[in-house]
Design a binder for these strands. Structure first.
Lengths: 150, 150
DNA sequence: CGCGAAAGTTTATATAGTCAAGCGTTTCAT
DNA sequence: ATGAAACGCTTGACTATATAAACTTTCGCG
């Protein structure tokens, strides 16, 4: 079974890509457990129950168009998970607040999300720390690129 | 700028989730450079130019429904990147072959994909090798889980 | 006041994902 | 061999998501 093909340094990036791809179905499946689509899950995850944000802020966080957020928010709101609220001082803005129901679901989702697969849990703390460093660097790298020249 | 918040081992898994989100837009953008959607990119990437496979095999690789693959393959075929071929001995099966044009595009896509972000390229080779080992274990773990009890 | 920009929504079009039904083939038990 | 069941792929209906354009309401500012 385990063909002992040696692992080289150049395997790293391809494996990151492979890993990222396997992420997709994992997240979709996780969200499905709560009757959420992947984007709805991301949205609920992004929202801070203690600090409502404008829709445009959520759009930025999800890296998607504002018009798109309308539909996603519609769905979450129709399920009573979040609420559109007016913003003081600017009637154009709609602040997104997480309801109690939403807060609870969000916690459950978070709990499930944080259950690492066996292979991850088995990693030595030091390795996890190293990987965390790399991932953070990549995430920040990408964020800088996509926010780009301000 | 760089706030020196220390990275802990427990940051790893949360960062994977974060990474998943940033990965989405990265891949979508990459594929868009070649006028491919994310799934079309995945499909083209999955197909082996030297070894045609049945549509159902591609469906498994993409972890999506067979009916879905029909449309994706339609698009790729209409652009002349792949071809449906009959299978010897079973006329139900359609084998997917990558055309010369598809082979070339696939190579370009692969080349772009394999350009590691600066954060990765900067890692010492030994670190990359170590981390590659870890990731391979995780990826294989996931694959085992989703293919499940055969 | 009046102009332009911003925040959200709406509409149209295209891609996906799911599920059910359909069609031609193949397998297999009898 | 033959008929029922299983298989491989396609279709159709429905929903979700992405993108782009037009539109509404509101704000900021000269």
């Amino acid at each position: 079974m385990d063909r002992e093909k040696p692992v080289t340094a150049d395997d790293f990036w391809p494996l990151v890509v492979e890993f990222a791809l396997s992420q997709r179905t994992w997240w979709v499946g996780l969200c499905a457990e709560f009757d959420l689509t992947a984007m709805q899950g991301h949205a609920l995850r992004s929202l801070d129950p203690d600090r409502p944000v404008a829709m445009s802020v959520l759009a930025d966080a999800l890296v998607c168009d504002a018009s798109n957020v309308t539909g996603i928010v519609d769905k979450l709101e129709s399920r009573g998970l979040i609420e559109r609220q007016g913003a003081p001082g600017d009637r154009r803005i709609k602040m997104l607040a997480v309801t109690d129901k939403g807060r609870e679901l969000r916690t459950q989702l978070w709990t499930r999300t944080m259950e690492p697969p066996a292979a991850v849990a088995a990693l030595p703390a030091d390795t996890r720390r190293q990987l965390a460093k790399v991932l953070r660097a990549i995430v920040m790298d990408r964020a800088r690129e996509s926010n780009g020249p301000r």
